[in-house]
Design a protein around this nucleic acid. Structure first.
Lengths: 155, 155
DNA sequence: TATTGTTATACTCTATAACTATA
DNA sequence: TATAGTTATAGAGTATAACAATA
């Protein structure tokens, strides 16, 4: 399998399938496809579902705060929020300056419960064969590969 | 750790930031962005670089074989291969039926060496703080979350 | 003026459908 | 007919630049 064409520094990979980078991309792609299929009956895209979940945990946050935490650029937050508001899952209320605080409507909370069900099912599926220790190790490893400035919810 | 995504005692749902699914998507997104930036000087996209790497390990494979192994649909393989051939990094030779066997040109092999450098640097960066055991466990875990039919191709 | 949000636009990857070409 | 490849097109996510609105 190894090409043998290269010198072999300590981190040289033998084969693409043995690299963390490749497996990470592949696993994420498969998860994304599955998630989209499961969210489709709810009429939501993955990005919209993520914002709903976030809003359930952090009601009243502004668009810019949400975008910073979820790493969604302002230009990309706009249509997500606009659509969630159009289908009356969230409300936008002025919060100083141009800032808009977002809140779930009653419909939004009901939809959120469904979204949670989908995400919890996926989480159960992908962690099903791991021990809790393995799961924590993998999550910690994924957090650790991120460069400075990419931590969760910088405070 | 006490703010933003991490703070919500009121829901039964595990916080988004504590889910494997979310961390997986985020890590993959960050990796993808970094990879694209590092491949840009080589004039290659991530998908093209992946095909080059694959071809270095599996010279002479046909488009359909490559697509099956890398999970790239035929309709999406066409423009990738077309462009790699246009810049003379690969050649296409008839291989029975409509099949096209792909081979790296000399330029392609030289470019591959550069691509390997980029990918190995990324691999070193993201596995740098893991023990070999941790690395293997994480890779095994990522492979394990894939549903039936998504296994890595045999050699 | 600095922050926030919006619009326009473009690129990458992925997906399906309909088509062509060859054994 | 079955397999391989191509073209057209659409959707989702992400990126930058230019602009508007508000404290």
């Amino acid at each position: 399998m190894a090409s043998g064409l290269m010198s072999n520094p300590s981190h040289a990979f033998v084969s693409l399938a043995d690299t963390l980078g490749f497996q990470l991309r592949r696993a994420a792609a498969i998860l994304k496809t599955a998630l989209e299929a499961e969210l489709e009956p709810l009429g939501l895209r993955a990005s919209e579902a993520t914002v709903l979940i976030y809003l359930g945990e952090n009601p009243g946050r502004t668009q810019s705060e949400i975008g910073r935490d979820l790493r969604i650029k302002p230009a990309n937050m706009a249509p997500i929020v606009s659509r969630l508001a159009a289908v009356e899952l969230i409300t936008r209320t002025p919060a100083g300056g141009r800032a808009l605080a977002l809140h779930l409507t009653d419909r939004g909370m009901a939809r959120l419960a469904e979204v949670r069900g989908v995400l919890q099912a996926q989480e159960a599926r992908i962690t099903g064969r791991m021990s809790p220790q393995e799961r924590d190790l993998v999550i910690a490893a994924l957090k650790a590969i991120r460069p400075p400035g990419c931590e969760d919810a910088p405070g």
